[in-house]
Simulated assay, not measured.
Amino acid sequence: MKEPRNHAKVGYSMIVVSASLAVVGILALVIGGNVLFADNMQRDNTLHFNECKENDFKSEGCEKYWDRINNEISGIYVDLDE
C-alpha cells in the first residue's frame, strides 16, 4: 500500500496558522495596554486635517491633504497654474 502524501500539506498549513497566531499575540502584547490606540490615531489625524482646513491647506505638513482633495473626482479641483 502506498504512503499517503497529504500529511506534509497539513503540516505546512499548521505552521502558517501558528505563525499568524503568534503575530496576533505579539501585537496584542504591544498594543494591549492601550485599548484606544486606533481611536487616538484617528482623532489626531482628524484634528490635523481640521487645522489644515482652517488655514486653506497652506501651512507646512498639509500638502498631502491638499493633493488628496484637489482632484477632478472630488469636485473641488483648483488649477494652481492659472
Results as ranks from 00 to 15, higher is better:
Lys64Trp: 12
Gly11Leu: 05
Lys53Tyr: 06
Asn50Lys: 15
Asn40Gln: 13
Glu82Arg: 15
Phe37His: 12
Glu60Cys: 00
Leu47Asp: 14
Asp39His: 04
Cys62Asp: 04
Ala28Gln: 11
Ile69Glu: 01
Met41Thr: 03
Ile76Asp: 11
Leu80His: 12
Met1Ser: 13
Asp44Met: 09
Gln42Asp: 07
Ala19Asp: 08
Glu60Tyr: 00
Asp81Asn: 15
Ile15Met: 06
Lys2Pro: 15
Gly33Phe: 05
Asp39Met: 03
Leu36Pro: 00
Asn34His: 06
His48Val: 05
Val30Lys: 14
Ala22Met: 12
Leu27Gln: 05
Ala22Val: 09
Asn45Gly: 08
Gly61Phe: 01
Glu72Val: 08
Asn40Pro: 02
Asn70Tyr: 01
Gly33Ala: 00
Asn55Lys: 14
Asn50Ile: 07
Asp79Gly: 06
Ala28Pro: 00
Met14Pro: 00
Val23Tyr: 08
Asn50Gln: 15
Lys53Val: 01
Val17Tyr: 12
Phe57Cys: 01
Asn71Leu: 02
Met1Tyr: 09
Gly32Glu: 03
Ser20Asp: 07
Trp66Cys: 02
Arg43Met: 07
Asn70Arg: 03
Ile26Ala: 11
Asn40Ile: 04
Asn40Met: 05
Ala28Trp: 08
Met41Cys: 04
Val30Pro: 04
Cys62Val: 02
Glu72Lys: 15
Ala38Trp: 00
Pro4Tyr: 05
Ile76Tyr: 14
Val23Gln: 05
Pro4Asn: 09
Ser59Phe: 00
Gly33Met: 03
Gly33Trp: 02
Ser13Glu: 13
Asn45Met: 11
Asp81Trp: 10
Leu29His: 09
Lys2Asn: 09
Val78Ser: 11
Trp66Leu: 05
Asp39Ile: 04
Tyr65Ile: 01
Arg68Pro: 00
Asn50Arg: 15
Asn50Glu: 15
Asp67Trp: 07
Leu27Cys: 12
Glu72Ser: 04
Asp79His: 08
Asn34Gln: 08
Phe37Lys: 07
Ile31Val: 09
Ile15Ala: 07
Arg5Lys: 13
Val24Asn: 05
Val24Ser: 06
Asn70Thr: 02
Ala22Ser: 12
Val10Ala: 12
Asp39Arg: 07
Gly61Ile: 01
His48Ile: 05
Met41Tyr: 06
Ile69Ala: 01
Met1Cys: 12
Asp56His: 11
Arg5Ala: 07
Asp39Asn: 06
Val35Ile: 09
Val23His: 03
Asn34Ala: 03
Tyr77Thr: 03
Arg43Leu: 09
Val17Glu: 10
Ile15Lys: 13
Asn6Met: 06
Val30Gly: 01
Met14Asn: 11
Leu21Ile: 08
Asn70Pro: 03
Gln42Ala: 13
His48Arg: 14
Thr46Leu: 13
Ile26Asn: 03
Ile26Trp: 06
Lys53Leu: 06
Leu21Phe: 07
